[in-house]
Design a protein around this nucleic acid. Structure first.
Lengths: 110, 110
DNA sequence: CATGTTGTTCGACATCCATAGAACAATAAA
DNA sequence: TTTATTGTTCTATGGATGTCGAACAACATG
């Protein structure tokens, strides 16, 4: 499997970030990722869409610089680029995530 | 001229807000509006697009609940719904505007 | 080797979106 | 009244986007 392309710190843009977060499915995924705060395989996060659609969304999040993806075996592990985004756009992601959780709290899934 | 439709406080959504701010032209407009902190006619803010396009963008911002528009004579005055957005999504708009200004400071136009 | 798990990629499709020009509406100004 | 100002609406267009199923690839497991 070919390695994933990630934008560098300088290539991350604010509008790109906002656009990536403006989709409900993606925002929910990022929200879920933030509460776990550790690498997650796609399957570990419940989604309402087909896996091919989810793959597309993950690509968008990756190309926006929001997540970092690496493969391990058959699964691809996704993690938030929290520190970088905080360094680049202080307070933005934190406020958005807090607002997202206030608007629609994450439901736990056992 | 028929009055403008504005979403109520409850109808404003986070993804709608993020989407509206994810366009460079719109973000720049909001940024400009925030620094002036007073009602502005469209023409008072420099834009790189045609006026019909700008009218479309203002409609998007209005329908997302970000701006309030009223008419006075031939011009339509636009103002930020800052307090409401702050009440609904604390810190979000402030952080975004700060990040926008850090990324691309507004140029003054005399 | 055969099967299962996990994602990616590839069409395909419907929809949305940013853009612009032309026509129009409403008001202001001469 | 005629002209200018300001902005909206309509139509068109090219491009992006979200969605899915089917096929595929890579690895793990039986």
């Amino acid at each position: 499997m070919k390695p994933y392309q990630h934008p560098t710190f300088d290539q991350i843009t604010l509008t790109g970030l906002l656009h990536a977060l403006s989709d409900p499915v993606r925002l929910n995924f990022v929200q879920c990722l933030a509460t776990k705060m550790c690498e997650q395989p796609c399957g570990a996060i419940p989604t309402p869409v087909a896996k091919s659609t989810m793959s597309h969304h993950l690509r968008v999040l990756r190309e926006a610089g929001i997540v970092r993806i690496r493969t391990e075996g058959t699964q691809s592990l996704t993690s938030l680029r929290l520190a970088e985004i905080e360094a680049k756009f202080p307070g933005v992601l934190e406020a958005v995530l807090k607002a997202a959780d206030a608007e629609k709290p994450l439901q736990e899934h056992p």
